[in-house]
């Protein structure tokens, strides 16, 4: 009885299926590989315990998506191409800076942002404004929550998105 208390489940230990233990070892190895090859592995789901995603990740995703939206609008609206391209470049610069401070791989350009439904120029610009406004509001919230050392960058991105709304008038 005393022995049972000191070594609880001593028998069970020996019954642990070898396959389970091997799987755990393999998973650990996979996590190491992913961590080494993919930076912080923020975008990977394979490891058993992925690190929590960086709170600025949605901001970077918005930047990549908005860049693609403006690029495709610039291609379709030649008379506004210069302004739209400048905005797309700003979003791309934001995505690069966010990737740098999050220490994640630089984001690849998003697939075409076109919704697939041809619209008038006014409707097209209005849809960009709606997207910019939502992204601006998200950036404001991110700026208010972010640590001090990130606040200037995130605030600058929020302000830039507000200027895009002005430029899209």
């Amino acid at each position: 009885m005393v022995l049972t208390d000191v070594v609880p489940g001593g028998d069970e230990k020996d019954k642990t299926p070898l396959r389970v233990r091997r799987r755990a070892v393999l998973a650990f190895g996979a996590a190491l590989t992913v961590g080494a090859a993919g930076g912080c592995g923020l975008l990977d789901r394979e490891p058993d315990e992925p690190p929590p995603p960086d709170p600025l990740l949605p901001l970077a995703d918005d930047a990549v998506r908005l860049a693609a939206l403006h690029r495709s609008a610039a291609a379709e609206l030649p008379e506004r191409a210069a302004a739209l391209t400048a905005i797309a470049e700003a979003h791309e610069a934001h995505a690069r800076e966010l990737a740098r401070i999050m220490a994640t791989p630089a984001p690849s350009p998003a697939a075409s942002g076109s919704a697939g439904t041809p619209a008038t120029a006014e409707e097209r610009i209005e849809s960009l404004r709606v997207a910019e406004k939502a992204a601006y509001e998200a950036a404001v919230q991110a700026c208010l929550r972010t640590p001090n050392h990130r606040a200037a960058l995130v605030g600058s991105i929020a302000a830039a998105r507000a200027t895009h709304l002005e430029a899209l008038k």
Partner: peptide, 11 residues
């Protein structure tokens, strides 16, 4: 002035 926006206002 073209473009009228800058990437990082205040920077």
């Amino acid at each position: 002035i073209d473009p009228i926006t800058v990437a990082f206002p205040g920077k």
